[in-house]
Simulated scan of single mutants.
Amino acid sequence: MAEIKAPMGGKVIKVSVEVGAKIAEDDEVAVLEAMKMEMPILSEDEGTVAEIKVEAGQAVEAEQVLVVLN
């Protein structure tokens, strides 16, 4: 099981995956807005999305888990 975490605090402006989706390394899983910049959050692993822990519009802190992969 792998966790994809926010690299810094900000606001989730888009969740790019859904539960059950198969993703590869470097696939976009979400977009975070921080310091007035949009930052794509990419998967460091491949797997299947088991759980999405955030939604668009939600504020997140650094190292907060965004997506869980199997």
Rank of each mutant, 00 (worst) to 15 (best):
K14Y: 00
V65M: 07
A59W: 00
E61M: 10
V29K: 03
E46D: 13
I23Q: 01
D26P: 03
I41A: 05
E25K: 15
T48V: 15
E55Y: 00
T48F: 01
S16A: 15
K14C: 01
A6F: 03
V19S: 05
A2E: 13
A30R: 04
L42I: 08
A21D: 15
E63K: 15
V65E: 01
A21K: 13
E63G: 07
E63C: 01
G9C: 03
G9L: 12
V19A: 10
K22C: 02
K53H: 09
K14R: 15
E28C: 14
V49L: 06
A34C: 10
P40Y: 09
M39P: 00
L69D: 07
E3M: 10
I23M: 08
G9A: 15
V65F: 11
E46T: 11
K36I: 11
V49A: 02
D27V: 08
A56V: 08
I41N: 04
S16P: 04
V67S: 04
V54W: 05
M1T: 13
A6N: 04
V12A: 04
G47T: 09
E55T: 09
G10A: 07
A59Y: 02
Q58M: 14
I52F: 06
G20Y: 06
K53N: 12
V19W: 03
E33P: 06
A34I: 06
E18R: 14
V12S: 03
E44F: 12
I4E: 03
D45C: 05
Q58E: 15
M37D: 11
Q64Y: 10
V65K: 04
E46G: 14
V31Q: 09
V19F: 02
I23Y: 03
E3W: 10
P40S: 10
M37A: 07
L32H: 02
E51I: 01
E25M: 12
A21Y: 00
